[in-house]
Each structure stands twice: as C-alpha cells, then as structure tokens.
Amino acid sequence: MSITKEKIHEILLRATEIREHILEMTCRAKSGHPGGSMSMSDIISTLYFYWLKINPKDPSWEDRDYFVLAKGHAAPALYATLAMKGYFPLEQLKTLRQLGSDLQGHPDKHSLSGVEMSTGSLGQGLSVMVGMALALKHDQKTNRVYGLLGDGECQEGQVWEAAMAAAHFHLDNLCIFIDKNGLQIDGATKDVMNIDPLTDKFTSFGWAVFTIDGHNIHEIVSTLEQADRVMDKPVAIIADTVKGKGITFMEHQVCYHGAPITDEQLVKAKAELHVTKGTYL
C-alpha cells in the first residue's frame, strides 16, 4: 500500500470538515439526516479525496469513476464532499432543503453537478449501479462504479435482486460499501429486522466480500486496492461504522438519524471537531 501518513491525515481532516458541514447544513435547515451522513464521512472522504478518478472541472468526463449514493438520505455528506471538491460553491450548502434549492432533501442529479444519480427511495440504487456497470462493460471501458448502501437499506428485497444480477453478470467493475452503522429510524437494525449475517449473504450471492472498520482510512484504502484486483465478481465492502461518528454525544444515538442537533449543541459539536482537526494538522 502506497498511501502516506500525510495523505491519511488529509483524508481524516477532510472527513472532519465534511462532518462540520453536515452539522451546520442540517442545523440551518432544521431537518435532514446527520447521523447516517457522519457514519459514512470517512468512506466518502477517502473516495473523493484519494481514490476516485474524477475531475470536478469536467464533471461529465467520460473516463471518470462513478459514485452512487444509494442511501440518498445521507445527501448532506455527498453535498459537503462535492462542494469541497469544487463541483459547486460551498456557499450553496446553506440552502439545503429550502424551497427552490438545488440541494434537495435527497440527491437530484439534474439540479446539482457531480450527482451521478437521483436517489432517495431505499433499495433502488444498487440496481442502477448494476445497469451502469453493465453499460461500462459493454462499452469495454475500464472506469468503475462505486456505491454506498445503508445497512437498513439491505432489508429491501430489491437489493437482493440486484445483488443476484451483479454476480450473474460478473460485474467486477462494481464495488459497494455497506455503511453498517447498526441503526435505523425505529431502532437497532438487529431489533427492527435483522440483516445479519450480511457477509454470508453477499458471499452466498456470489460476491467478493470484505469486512472493515469504516473509520480506519488505512483499511478503507487497502480494501479498495484489493477490490480492484478481484476478477469476475462484484465486491461488497461491509464497513462497520458508528452512527453520528465524530461527535461524542451523537455517537450510537438513533435520535440523530433524521433530526438535526440544536444551535447550542452545534457550538459544542464544533468545539469537538476543532480539537479533532488539530490532531490532523
């Protein structure tokens, strides 16, 4: 693995900035989904600030890699990342969820540069990724499709229709993360509707499966490198994550799935993020 310690620190610093934007955006909007946006921040930071072949100056570059956020409710994480990459001005983040804003509650590909697919209705994103990967294969292109699903999302039957198809069509140009933060609106995923053993499920569906700590940049990068070398099969990276990761009082709390923190809490949260940032500078 060739990634330097400095690069890992940069990814972590960007992830912290993403979290700060998520909290500010949802706090200002007085709605949105901070918890599941923060659990995936380290993954999306690694993808956009290190791994994906993309060019924000040329968003429709033919040879780019594609990223589809299947769990569209984590839009704040995607929006913050895209703005930080320069797809649109950071200032626009302030308009999240407001009438007339390009930053819809769930991503709309037609309103915002860098959004590869409109998502939001859970369970549908993986099928779209399969279609995109099929198109790339047909066109003999080497760019790849990456995606991220929620763990609760895997309760949707369509995810398994798509999982079957991805293996059936030998889509080794498709790599997905499962943001396994263990919580969904109504409670713990294992209590609401158990999805485990997730690794066994994807394996039996014909996927190459890796299980990692979704907040360990080193592990994320080395797994992406291994995923690149997998032949003939799609790859699922099951990332154990913490909902609300990065802010002590938000971690593992189901209440921040679909509700923002208060203005007072934001001050406290930003202070904690400031300390975190310091460790990466």
Partner: peptide
C-alpha cells in the same frame, strides 16, 4: 439483458443503462 423474475431490478438496471446514455 434478462433480469429474471425480478421486475423491480429490471427497471433499476434499465435506469442504470439509461443513466450511461
């Protein structure tokens, strides 16, 4: 492409292909 007896995924895959032009 035959989706098998899986209409939801059939439409999703169709969308993915269309998303690529």
């Amino acid at each position: 492409f035959n989706a098998g007896i899986a209409e939801q995924n059939c439409i999703g895959m169709a969308a993915g292909l269309a998303n690529m032009g």
